[in-house]
């Protein structure tokens, strides 16, 4: 459309990585858009914008969701955690560290969401097997097709690997 649309903004309160943000935004904006453009949290990626590729995954109340098909307004009553909220200062989370140690990162585009999905999977099931890991991360696409070391990284955090 060539003419400028008059965009009505509404106030919204978002809780992200432990911080409270009071914003005025157009209600059609997605959580991903607001995280990246307003809060400058660019770890979650915009790729398909259709909820298919998984690159935008964040945690909502500890569970993974697609930020690209979530409205920011619908996230008002939840606690959002992005990849930026996993590390403790300069200390990586154990999942992040395991990905680094396993050499799981190739181009890196899908990695924030892979780590988010892996974190959620391990919270729910601390000792997943290979099949469970693959299903848990089934919604995260890596176009480098570097899945093997991602699975290795997660397996390294399970009971079985420590014995």
């Amino acid at each position: 459309m060539s003419e400028m649309d008059v965009i009505e903004k509404q106030p919204v309160t978002l809780r992200v990585n432990g911080n409270v943000h009071e914003l005025e935004i157009a209600p059609a904006r997605t959580l991903l858009d607001v995280l990246r453009s307003e809060l400058r949290l660019t770890g979650a990626k915009r790729s398909c914008n259709q909820g298919v590729c998984g690159a935008c995954s964040v945690l909502r109340d500890g569970k993974p969701v697609r930020a690209c098909i979530s409205l920011a307004f619908a996230a008002e009553d939840s606690e959002i955690t992005t990849i930026e909220g996993l590390a403790d200062g300069n200390r990586l989370s154990r999942v992040q560290q395991a990905f680094v140690d396993a050499g799981a990162v190739q181009c890196g585009f899908c990695m924030p969401a892979m780590v988010i999905a892996a974190t959620a999977l391990l919270n729910e099931n601390p000792n997943p097997g290979v099949e469970e890991i693959r299903h848990g991360l089934g919604g995260n696409i890596c176009r480098c097709s570097g899945y093997v070391k991602v699975v290795d990284a997660i397996l390294s955090l399970t009971e079985g690997s420590k014995s």
Partner: peptide, 9 residues
């Protein structure tokens, strides 16, 4: 249905 993240939504 779909994947874990979509089933959470």
């Amino acid at each position: 249905i779909a994947h874990p993240a979509v089933r959470n939504m």
